[in-house]
């Protein structure tokens, strides 16, 4: 993306941000609250349209595409909260991930019921496997509203992975999760990372990101303040001041150097 801006009622939530995500890499985005990280994801997803600048996915400009068209290009994402899907059963929710493969057009989906039915079984199996990867095989029939917050996030991640996207956007995958859940999420991300998926991860847990990512982008007040290899970004003075307690950044940077 290059020089992307987005304004709401005169407030510039994202201000002239440019960066690229290499195919097959994992890139992290950090920044304090209100830095515009989630807005950035919403721009890539087509939920918001940039007021200026160009976003390209695989060389194709997406500024004028609707979010479902962008999803068809192979972009999937997780949500910060799955509150809006509380009626769904976990298995049905994860099956939404395979929806695009199962239903190419509305008409075919409703009238090609025999075909859809055939795929239904294989999709259900795939969804179960995706949940099982997180050790959630026991809760496939629970409604999302009955699950604790951290588990809802894992179910959401399973759904996004089931879409087999080329670009996977993760919006705070670890917020509100425990260290155990974090380890499970990190495991699964490691797996997808080693296949040739491209990931863009927004999170607060710098340690988590440092362990997962090759690249970091740091944002503050809608602007990009640093970009590069993890250790360099964490060592950056501006980043430390804006986001981290200085000591924590130093500690992580040191660990990185030792490794």
């Amino acid at each position: 993306m290059s020089s992307v801006s987005c304004e709401f009622g005169g407030i510039r939530a994202v201000d002239e941000v440019s960066f690229g995500v290499e195919p097959g890499s994992i890139t992290g985005v950090i920044g304090p609250n209100g830095a515009g990280k989630t807005v950035l994801l919403n721009l890539i997803n087509g939920i918001y349209r940039p007021t200026r600048g160009i976003i390209q996915i695989d060389g194709q400009a997406t500024n004028r595409l609707r979010s479902d068209q962008i999803a068809r290009l192979g972009v999937a994402r997780t949500f910060q909260s799955t509150e809006q899907f509380k009626e769904f059963k976990a298995i049905d929710y994860v099956m939404l991930g395979g929806f695009l493969q199962q239903c190419r057009s509305v008409f075919a989906c409703i009238f090609g019921l025999a075909k859809v039915a055939k795929r239904e079984k294989s999709e259900a199996r795939r969804a179960f496997e995706a949940l099982d990867r997180f050790g959630l095989g026991a809760i496939v029939n629970a409604r999302l509203s009955e699950l604790p917050y951290g588990m809802q996030k894992q179910v959401d991640l399973a759904r996004a992975i089931a879409a087999e996207p080329r670009l996977l956007l993760l919006d705070e995958p670890t917020s509100g999760t425990t260290s155990i859940e974090r380890a499970a999420i990190a495991n699964v991300l490691g797996d997808i990372g080693s296949s040739d998926r491209t990931l863009l991860v927004v999170d607060h847990d710098v340690r988590f990101l440092a362990g997962q990512c090759e690249h970091l982008v740091a944002m503050s007040n809608g602007r990009k303040i640093a970009e590069g290899v993890v250790a360099d970004v964490l060592a950056d003075r501006g980043v430390r001041e804006a986001y981290l307690g200085i000591s924590e950044a130093a500690e992580i940077a040191e660990n990185e150097e030792m490794a």
Partner: peptide
């Protein structure tokens, strides 16, 4: 089946439906 899930997503949140590709 799939159509039922598509409608349910739209009922819950049209924005999220778009992001999922519906």
């Amino acid at each position: 089946r799939a159509p039922g899930r598509a409608w349910l997503v739209i009922k819950e949140s049209e924005i999220s439906a778009g992001v999922i590709g519906i």
